[in-house]
Design a protein around this nucleic acid. Structure first.
Length: 536
RNA sequence: GUCCCCGUAGCUCAAUGGACAGAGCGCAGGCCUCCGAAGCCUGAGAUUGAGGUUCGAUUCCUCAUGGGGACACCA
């Protein structure tokens, strides 16, 4: 990767001039503006501040020192170092795309094991839009980790034990008229529908809400899996059952004992508490109720312990906004358990709009747009792109009518169109290729000199950096952004440069470029989980 | 009341403290005798407000203001 080499060359130069301990953590970016070179470093600005020197002088000194390396820097603006990629590097990196094909941008395998837990919606009803948002995010993020060389597991944690299952059973009995309604019962249309369709089961379990709840939960889960896997292309490696995999296998108990052994627990009013306040939580949390039931939190701690015991180094947990209050306590548990790296990504809320009016969503009351409905309406590619192009911190105002209307103008088509177009050219080139007498002596990039060609090549070789950065900061929307820019670079190239020409050498070079576009667009679409159409 | 997230163009969203704040949609114009016009080109159009830190702030801090969410021996 070019950027990594350049970075170490700059750091080495700075260390030579100012001492190793002075080298700051500087940025090295590919600027949008081509006048700012292929890469721009702000190291001189940071160093100047640290050393109390003039930024321009520092920049000049660095540029002079770098003259001895294969990197030519120019000083610009307040003290940026701008770099041009040398033709040799560019050629080498470009050929790498054609050589490695769909492996391009894949880092060598590392030993690090990452688990991405996402969706994990309770099987007490259908998936919501927020579930879908987390679903696409987790799916794409896992793809990125795989590309970055990590061993990656996608996990759906199923809360199929405890209170809510009983509540689900009771809710069903209530709509069936067996028992009276209560405030906390689930009341959505889906409850009525299920009850109406499963009269015999309800009858069978009329005195046993827990068994009824379990039966219904299994059914709901089956449906959830259908929506996730068949309709949305979201994949999971593992569905972990709270009941079977955590409680019955003793992990909740093990976590409890671990906390006890570490002396982080105490009893108060008959309940068992964990001192999560020692780890940044605003209050301590109950592990075991005064009636002797394990809390959801204890099961979760058991779940984290189980993950740790399965030798994971890191866990990324993607949760909805309603779980925000849960972050600190679960991070406390992760720390006690000794999970090396634990991240919780909280996706922000989705407001349901009807024109300019907000429609209050409530799963319990059954007022919400089902994720399945969205996917059915606009298709899975559009739905995916719609969520993935936004940072998870953004609050989304969602209008189903607008989504429907806009689905045909979605940027995802712009990208897919570029992909289809590029392939279509390849096909054409194959059938009309002039019999090339001899391969030209010139290197590919010596033949690709127009502004559009250069811009496209540089965009292409940026891809490994996009993967590398995203694996670090989880900002998946960077990839959608990149795809859009890459597609644009290709469309621009297409408008102004004919691939198939009378010049055999030039044609060959442009076909290579076109091939590289197909490869990189294809990989990036795969990473996001968006389909690669053959035609549109 | 306490805590978290968000206020950027008419709309939906970008921008590790950096150079002229970028896209898509929409709007106004222009481009197919030629590899796919679901494309390309041109134009109009924005950082909620007030202070502060900094050589430099959409970004960090404080206050104000608007919106969303979380604050159980529920999950």
């Amino acid at each position: 990767m070019i950027r990594a080499e350049l970075r170490s060359a700059i750091a080495a130069s700075a260390a030579r001039l100012f001492g190793k301990e002075q080298v700051p953590d500087f940025s090295l970016e590919a600027p949008e503006n081509p006048e700012h070179g292929d890469y721009a470093a702000n190291i001189a600005l940071l160093l100047a501040k640290k050393l109390g020197k003039n930024p321009l002088e520092v920049a000049d000194a660095l540029a002079a020192d770098l003259k001895n390396s294969q990197w030519a820097a120019s000083v610009a603006g307040p003290g940026f170092l701008n770099f041009k990629i040398s033709p040799m590097f560019l050629e080498k990196e470009f050929k790498e795309i054609l050589k490695r094909k769909e492996k391009y941008g894949s880092a060598p395998a590392k030993s690090k094991k990452i688990q991405v837990e996402f969706i994990s919606a309770n099987p007490t009803g259908p998936l919501t839009l927020a579930n879908g948002r987390g679903g696409f995010l987790g799916d794409a993020l896992a793809n990125i980790f795989l590309r970055a060389g990590y061993k990656t597991e996608r996990e759906y944690y199923v809360n199929d034990a405890g209170n809510q299952i009983v509540t689900l059973g009771k809710s069903l009995l209530a709509v069936a008229g067996v028992i009276p309604e209560e405030e906390q019962f689930y009341k959505g249309e889906y409850i009525k529908t299920w009850a109406a369709g499963h009269a015999s089961i309800i009858k069978k379990f009329k005195n046993n809400p827990e068994s009824l709840g379990k039966a219904a939960a299994e059914d709901f889960l089956k449906n959830i899996k259908k929506v996730i896997e068949k309709k949305s292309g979201i994949r999971f490696d593992r569905y972990t059952s709270e009941d079977r995999d955590i409680h019955k296998k003793g992990f909740a108990k093990k976590a409890f004992e671990l906390f006890q052994k570490k002396g982080l627990m105490y009893e108060k009013e008959g309940a068992q508490w964990l001192k999560t306040t020692d780890f940044g939580d605003d209050k301590d949390r109950v592990l075991m109720t005064s009636e002797g039931y394990p809390t959801y939190f204890l099961a979760d701690a058991g779940h984290y312990l189980e993950t740790k015991l399965r030798k994971f180094d890191a866990k990324i947990n993607i949760v909805g906004p309603d779980h925000y209050g849960y972050v600190k306590r679960i991070q406390a548990a992760a720390e006690i358990i000794g999970l090396e790296e634990s991240e919780v990504i909280v996706t922000q809320a989705i407001r349901l709009m009807h024109g300019t009016e907000e429609v209050k969503m409530s799963k319990r009351k059954g007022e919400f747009v089902e994720f399945e409905e969205l996917v059915d309406e606009v298709g899975h590619d559009t739905a995916r792109y719609f969520f993935l192009e936004k940072s998870p911190h953004t609050h989304i105002d969602f209008d189903l009518n607008l989504a429907r209307e806009r689905s045909t103008k979605n940027p995802v088509y712009y990208i897919q169109y570029a992909y289809v177009r590029a392939q279509s050219i390849l096909k054409k080139a194959e059938s009309s290729r002039p019999k090339s007498k001899r391969a030209g002596a010139k290197k590919t990039l010596e033949l690709l000199q127009t502004v559009e060609e250069r811009a496209l090549v540089k965009k292409l070789i940026q891809f490994p950096e996009i993967i590398e950065d995203t694996a670090k900061d989880f900002a998946v929307h960077r990839v959608t952004r990149y795809l859009l820019l890459l597609a644009r670079a290709f469309h621009n190239f297409y408008e102004k440069n004919r691939v198939i020409t009378a010049d055999a050498d030039l044609t060959r070079a442009r076909i290579e470029l076109d091939k590289a576009v197909v490869i990189v667009l294809g990989i990036a679409l795969d990473v996001l989980g968006v389909s690669k159409p053959k035609k549109m």
